[in-house]
Design a protein around this nucleic acid. Sequence first.
DNA 1: AAGGAGATCCCGACAATAGA
DNA 2: TCTATTGTCGGGATCTCCTT
Length: 397
Amino acid sequence: MIYPFVKLSDLCSIITRGKAPKYGDSTQFNIVKSAQVQPTGVLWDECPPVTDKFGVGCSPTYFLQNGDVLLNGTGTGTLGRPSIVRTVTPNRFIPDSHINLLRANDDLNPLYLFYWFFSPRGQRIIELNHTGSTNQIELSAKRLSYLKIPLPPLPVQKKIAAILDAADSLRQKDKALIAKYTELSQSLFLEMFGDPAINKRKFKLGTIGDLLAEVKYGTSSKADENGEYPYLRMNNITYEGYMDFSNLKYITLSEKDKPKYLVRRGDLLFNRTNSKELVGKTGLYNSDNEMAIAGYLIRTRVNENANPYYIWGYLNSKHGKLTLAGMCKSIVGMANINAKEFQTIKILHPPIELQNQFAERIEAIEKQKKQAELSLQKSDDLFNSLMQKAFKGELVS
DNA sequence: AAGGAGATCCCGACAATAGA
DNA sequence: TCTATTGTCGGGATCTCCTT
């Protein structure tokens, strides 16, 4: 059954784009900015305060209420990213002037509206209707009000929303479990080696260089779409130190370059150049596929005194992150830690047996985490297929 | 190997236009 | 004419690519 399409302005009020806020120390009002508008919900804790003057001056309709749907109105990466307000402190949060606020009337279920914009079809409609050039795209409330959405009767909307919500919460549970395993790895380091700042167990202090057999920069050659090997770049290492193989580029290497730039299981990958917060991201290569690395990554291999998991664990610990932040040279907008400096980083040298034990336990945790990731993959697939069917009338009769 | 610099993203400001 | 809403622009911060 195909649902009729109805103009958005007939289904909700589109309250949008207040004045640009004046920032201040108010404890009474907060502004919700584009970055805080996420499909998982609004990140209330990160909304900066604005002055009372703004709050008083603005119409009370701007204050967010439960059931409001938010839609980012600018930015190539953010335009159309939706969020639904589920629980909000009343009369406190105001959307920024680049966020469209949609308040559904009685014929429209807000959660249904949210999932519509979240769905590939909803996103595509936004993509077709924005104004502006490639790097400055916008979707005004006016244009938004002309958009049409498929509209089943209210009980069906509610049913669809509930099914999608259940599938989504399954995904979120898997994600939370994965996050827990990450936390577990971090606390394991402290448990086994103690706080490096205190060094209660009196391990010998040395440098990272002492533990390495080889330090090598990646290639600066350009990526090539039909390349032979995946080409790891900085976005392939997460802040927590895990490899992320999504969004890969490719490269072809000459025979001579292969040993120089290919990585193998157990290599530590260090991100030497990035923004100040992200410089020093360190991943441990844990795959048997052959991949190459870019020039802003440094490939290091340990000697007989170390297990790479130990160095990885240290550089991703709180103490390690602080050390890295303290040493990077910050040029305008960029931070850098070169290979020489990397090797001078002070690190405790626990006995290799203990390091190996740590590695074993981390690997066990990682194994569990893999399971959770597989489960997430499945729940993602389920959610996506439900979403495809939902708005075509194939989900609820 | 090192880091300079262009491209992109996002925010804030303000000009232009519409409405009261 | 004044005020509210909408469209567009400038620029800092960050991300990537490219040159020396």
